[in-house]
Amino acid sequence: MKQLLSQLVDGQPLSAEQAIEGFELIMSGQAEPAQTGAMLALIAQRGPTVDEVVGAATVMRQKAVPVNVPEGLTIIDTCGAGGTGSTFFNISTTAALVAAGAGRPLGLGVAKHGNRSVTSRSGSSNVLENLGVNLQADPDVLTKCLDEAGMCFCFAPAHHPAMKYAGPVRAALGFRTVFNLIGPLTNPAGAKRQLIGVPSPEVADLMSQALLRLDAEHCLLVHSVLPDGHSLGELTTFGPAQAVQVHHDMTKSYPIDPAALGMPFALPDSVTIQTPADSAVIVKQVLDNEAGPARDITVLNAAAALQVGGVADSLEEGLELAAAAIADGRAKNVLDTLIQLTNA
């Protein structure tokens, strides 16, 4: 580790092999806390390279507690990179419920990877726990959830025990590190199709290159900017978003304009929350097919998830599938089944 730290101090990035070596020492508890903090800080100061992201993700994948996927089911994830300080309801989690409702009959399941809130007002686990989902369900229960509900929730602390060594150091540092980027790259069910919200175009470019190296099949990284200049890692009806697609070993950037899809414009205040309980109320309203900005935004993100999952050929088709899953109660049934199975 000392040799790797000396190289970083000299301003030389780590190769993928060196990053694997360094993060293996961190995630196996062999590195001293001071060494872990130094390595994370030195990488964060200049920004991680693709090699360093790939190396860290590779080690975390190797040490993850896996979720077995039912035969014949394609898995997607809607886990974002975070870091935007979102004040909105849990968009990606609600979209995951809707995508599962629409996708399960078509052979598509959602393994939603997530954690407690760090920068936002409500993390995915916060709102699901508030809704009654047991976050500590065993991996075999999660496999059953995928089969019967079309969705499971992979609570990050339960699937990445190796993070116990880095967790206290990350908390003490108090700034974003490379670990913020590898959460979406380490899905316990091995999802290779993902909708990923990112805090900036630069992060989208970095993660798209890492995904290419990590054998992604079809991913969409999205980023938008609110009228006040605040970054958001979601698709919304507040305005256009920029997307980077990773597909067929290639990347492509393009805008996504909700207005061009016929979606009504909304103001950010219309979906702002203060607590996870507030978010849970909105999730229930969306699943009850209550019209409004929250439902529109959910349908838009679910449509993108269904497209990367391969069951919708376009966003337009995805919008139809997502809206139908809400209207006929399939999306609500996903949540009800998740609650029942994880608490059995």
Rank of each mutant, 00 (worst) to 15 (best):
G123I: 05
I297S: 12
E290L: 13
V67E: 01
L220V: 04
G37F: 05
G167A: 12
A102G: 01
P268H: 09
I282D: 14
F175H: 14
A277T: 11
Q136S: 09
C79W: 02
H113K: 05
P268F: 09
V198N: 10
E17M: 05
A241E: 00
Q242T: 08
D77G: 06
G229H: 01
L106Y: 13
N180K: 10
S15E: 11
R46I: 03
L235C: 02
S15Q: 13
T36F: 04
Q3V: 13
V271F: 14
Q307D: 02
G22M: 04
A216Y: 04
N126R: 09
P255I: 03
K164C: 07
A304I: 13
D205L: 13
G239D: 00
K112A: 03
P105C: 10
M27T: 15
G174T: 10
A96E: 11
M39D: 03
L42W: 11
I256E: 08
E234G: 10
T236L: 04
R170A: 06
V178H: 11
L97Q: 07
P33Y: 03
S231F: 09
A204W: 08
V203H: 07
H230Q: 08
E32D: 10
Y254T: 02
Y254W: 12
L206Y: 06
G29K: 07
I182G: 01
Q12E: 13
V311R: 03
R295K: 15
G107M: 03
L146V: 00
A331W: 08
Q18V: 06
N90R: 11
H223C: 10
A16C: 12
C154S: 01
E320D: 11
Q285A: 09
P258E: 03
Q7K: 15
L341K: 04
N180C: 13
L267F: 00
P276V: 08
V311H: 02
L97W: 06
F179A: 15
T94F: 00
Q242G: 09
E316T: 15
D336S: 12
P199R: 08
R193K: 14
V67F: 15
L306M: 12
A280H: 05
H159E: 01
T177A: 09
V53M: 09
A204F: 01
G85M: 07
Q307S: 03
R46N: 06
V283M: 11
H113L: 04
E17P: 09
M39C: 06
A16F: 09
P201N: 11
K192P: 00
A166L: 00
L4I: 15
L300S: 01
